[in-house]
C-alpha cells in the first residue's frame, strides 16, 4: 500500500508587494510520500479552492529541475531539506508524519515579494542583459570542432553553465549577495574561447549591474555553495574576482 503522511503547513501569505504579510496554517492529510513538494502544494490549493479561499501563489514551470522557476525557503533552507535538488525535485518522503513545514519566499532586498511565495527575480535578468552573452555575427555555422578546447576547460565551463538562475544562493546568503550566480555566468563564458574575447567588458558590466541593483558584498561564507541545487562551486567567485580586478587594472 502507498505510504502517506499528515502534515501541518505554515505558509507565508502576502496580497501584494506593498501589503503586510503573515503566516497561515493549513492541515493537510494523506499526502503520499512519493509525491513531490509542489504536488503537495497543489493539494493544498485544491483544498483551499474547495473551501472558496484564495490559493497560495508560488512559482514553478518545468517541475524537473531545469528551469529555475521554483523558489521556496522550506524549514530553514532554500529548496528544502534535501541536498542538490530544486524545490520541484524535493520529495515528501523527506518529511515525517505529523511534521510542521514552514514555507517562506526568498528574502532579499533585491528580490521583493510579488505575492505570497512569489518574488520578483528580474534583477537576475537585468544582470544577464548587462553582459551575460557573446556577440556573434550571423552567417554560416562554424564546425564545433574547428576551435580546440581542452577537455578540463570544457568540463568546468559546463559545470558553471549548469546554473539555472533560481536565486537560492541569494536567499541563503546572509549578505544578500548574488556573487555565486554572477560568477557562474561570467565563468562559463570566460573559460571558452568564444566568450573569452569579451571577458573584460562582461565582468565589469555584470558586476556594475549587480552592485547597482543592491545585492550585497560577498564575504565568502560559502552558504550559497551548500544550498545551490546545481552544485556551483565557490571557485567561480574567485574567478569572477580575478576577471573583474584584472579588467579594472587594465583600464
Amino acid at each position: 500500500m502507498e505510504k502517506t503522511i499528515n502534515i501541518t503547513l505554515k505558509v507565508w501569505r502576502q496580497n501584494g508587494p506593498k501589503e503586510k504579510g503573515r503566516f497561515e496554517t493549513y492541515k493537510l492529510d494523506k499526502v503520499s510520500i512519493d509525491s513531490s513538494f509542489l504536488e503537495m502544494l497543489d493539494m493544498v490549493n485544491e483544498q483551499l479552492i474547495n473551501e472558496y479561499k484564495e490559493p497560495v501563489a508560488f512559482d514553478h514551470d518545468c517541475r524537473e529541475g531545469i528551469c529555475g522557476m521554483c523558489s521556496l525557503y522550506i524549514n530553514g533552507r532554500p529548496h528544502g531539506p534535501d541536498d542538490d535538488v530544486t524545490t520541484c525535485q524535493l520529495h515528501m518522503r523527506k518529511f515525517k508524519d505529523g511534521q510542521t513545514i514552514t514555507i517562506e519566499p526568498w528574502r532579499s532586498a533585491a528580490f521583493p515579494v510579488i505575492k505570497d511565495l512569489i518574488v520578483d527575480r528580474r534583477a537576475f535578468d537585468k544582470i544577464i542583459a548587462a553582459g551575460g552573452y557573446v556577440s556573434v555575427n550571423t552567417g554560416g555555422v562554424p564546425d564545433a570542432n574547428s576551435i580546440a578546447i581542452p577537455k578540463v576547460d570544457a568540463d568546468e565551463a559546463m559545470d558553471s553553465a549548469s546554473c539555472i538562475g533560481c536565486g537560492a544562493c541569494v536567499a541563503a546568503c546572509k549578505n544578500g549577495s548574488a556573487m555565486l550566480f554572477v560568477s557562474a555566468k561570467v565563468s562559463h563564458l570566460a573559460m571558452l574561447p568564444q566568450g573569452r574575447v569579451e571577458g573584460a567588458r562582461r565582468a565589469k558590466a555584470m558586476v556594475a549591474k549587480m552592485d547597482e541593483l543592491g545585492f550585497g558584498n560577498c564575504t565568502n561564507t560559502g552558504a550559497c555553495e551548500v544550498e545551490c541545487p546545481k552544485n556551483i562551486s565557490l571557485s567561480n567567485i574567485a574567478r569572477l574576482n580575478r576577471e573583474f580586478l584584472s579588467a579594472k587594472f587594465q583600464d
Binding site: G76, P81, K174, G222, A223, E227
Partner: peptide, 25 residues
Amino acid sequence: QNMKARGPQSYASGNKTSDVEFASQ
C-alpha cells in the same frame, strides 16, 4: 551594505544551512 541588501525580513524558520564556518558569518 550587506545588512541593507539582506533586507529587514528574517526567515521565521531560521537558517539551517550546514557546513558554514562560524567565523565567516
